[in-house]
Design a protein around this nucleic acid. Structure first.
Lengths: 211, 211, 211, 211
DNA sequence: AATGAATGAGCGTTCATTCAT
DNA sequence: AATGAATGAACGCTCATTCAT
């Protein structure tokens, strides 16, 4: 009908149309997330994505202009979820241990919540392992590096090769996350403790004779 | 970028007649390695591969039954190169430090040699990072796990969660390798030292209060 | 280029509510005329048409059942404008010269008025020239033939091959019209004089020894 | 086998492969000509074209890179056939009458030969009449204008508005050609005589009072 | 009556793969 | 064994049209 008297900038209660639109958008994003994770970006077709939603092929293009755009939207969404969480957690850290533990925990918990996607992730063919490697997660890890470097200046973190250190942190987080998800009982805290202890011990060793 | 077997000084009229079957097979494998690394598996077409060899499209199928098969052959080749090296290096290790250092060093050196491919690996679009994640490398890391588990039984390695430990080792190796390759001066030994010190220190920390 | 019915000085918030059904119909017809002329029938999409009206895509189908139907309506409209004019002009003619001159003049003036469309008609790509070749204009020229044939019987027009003569008249009209529109100063009377002189002279030549 | 000893630049006798390639190319061109003529460029799909050849859809792209390219090839072919013929015919003309007659005759004969296509041209739907309006034919008529202008300077042709004159010639040719093709007995000479007499008479009329 | 999202057939094009030469 | 044209399924995407609101 659209004969609302109210100004269009304040659509007080969402109409049914808006609801289904939002639901469709989400359905496409979810399906895309799944399929990208299962098949990888290159091997995923738009038909694969819409096929999972039950929508018609053309409908995809009412929401996204291309496969690329849906990928970007997905990345943005992921970033929106995880980056602020990681950033905040680090800014609160009083000690190196807290810094590491809370970072790992936040990541492992995020991954656990996204479990659904991660478990589908293991492909049948076993070709190329997929990786939560969106630009935004990458940007998140860039932030990590900045924070680590800052902490080094402040003396909170021993002065070691910061790029290698961050690479190691990221590698540990990625691979341990996958390992964690294969377990019958997923315990993000436990994994975070393991990773923290490993890195903490390793860093003090690196700090001393450095080599 | 063309990986031709023949001498580059006379490429034009060089007939393919004198190429042996093995040379063709190798040419295809090399081209495939290049293109997979540049574009990723899904976005690579068989045309991209044969295009770089100068062979005809049909010829591809005299050597491989499908794009999938050439990928597997490639992985086998990679495994053939790196797995025995890693295995041997570990079997010689007398101490945990040696075990770790030589393993990391072997991997980082392998990666350095394959540099050409790894640097191209960073895709322009920057979509999804490609990863040396072939089944064979994976199998290699399974072997690693076996060896680590064995060493734990022997008392060479402190008893910690072996799956998490191996995941961490693999993650550190993968990510540090990428970081290493971005450096103006690539130093596999230095990277191996860093990784070894990190893990060694971390493991002793893990071994003590265990958590 | 937008053919809106409303006054251009307040286009933004002008509701469509006050547009009468007839105004919408006209808006669609105008937009369709524009776009058909610019892109040709085949390359025009209904979206192109409704896009220019500011109406919703579904609204199109309240007025026309298909792209084809709007084209036909357009043709009818064109015929409505030009056919009676031509017919009347010819019925008044007292001499052959008057007959020809007034016919040409009516056509060239009609074309001049529709100038806007005709100039856009020359497509960028330059593929296939579009032509005011609607069924109605064709029907109009059928009427011309009837009138010419009648005039021949009456002795007003020399007896020559009437089909070829009419084809020639039509061809001259079409092509000269296009030429005329490329000129900085469009002069329908001048063009009509040229065409009339040409045909008049030609006909008397044809009438005499016929060859 | 392709183990010919001879140099590849002199493939003395066409192999079967080359023959079918050429045949396919021709089949596509013929089909494209037909369909473009029947449906118009915009409404023609590549599938329409290949559908008439019996070839597979992909095969189209072994021969032409796009719909556009096949259109251009078609135009080039048409030009190759008709333009030199027209040019030569005009250069031989000693008088204005010869000039006109031979030009019209060449065109009408060309059209007669291409009859097959021209008859299909009349579309069922009757939408938009198609027209032998390829860029090359147009270019051919540009040449005509140059020649007419030159002849005017030489005094062979009375000095009248050259653009209108040429437009008239072209229009007469186009429309009379279509008329001619509807006749049971197609007589290009007869049509050329009619057109020549018409124009010749018209021009001398135009030349006298100049307007 | 108007809207605009949903539909799915169809478009131009690419691709892995086959097969006659 | 090598070739490269032929194949037809599949791709990303557009479109005329429908229909719930």
């Amino acid at each position: 009908m659209k004969s609302r008297a109210g100004p269009p900038e304040a659509p007080a209660s969402k109409g049914k149309r808006e609801q289904t639109k939002e639901a469709n958008r989400q359905a496409i994003l979810n399906a895309a997330h799944e399929v990208f994770t299962e098949l990888g970006y290159g091997e995923t077709s738009v038909r694969d994505i819409i096929g999972r939603t039950g929508l018609a092929s053309g409908t995809f293009y009412n929401y996204f202009r291309s496969k690329e755009e849906v990928f970007e939207a997905l990345s943005d969404a992921a970033a929106l979820k995880i980056r602020p969480r990681l950033k905040e957690v680090r800014s609160r850290a009083r000690t190196l241990e807290e810094f590491l533990f809370e970072t790992f925990r936040a990541y492992f918990e995020y991954v656990s919540e996204d479990h659904q996607a991660f478990t589908l992730m293991r492909r049948n063919a076993g070709h190329i392992r997929v990786r939560m490697d969106t630009p935004e997660i990458m940007a998140g890890f860039d932030e990590l590096k900045d924070d680590v470097a800052k902490a080094m200046v402040d003396g909170l973190v021993p002065k070691v090769d910061v790029d290698y250190l961050c690479a190691a942190l990221i590698g540990i987080a990625f691979e341990m996350a996958e390992q964690m998800l294969t377990r019958p009982k997923i315990d993000a805290r436990e994994a975070a403790h393991f990773a923290t202890a490993l890195v903490l011990g390793g860093m003090s060793a690196l700090a001393k004779p450095a080599r």
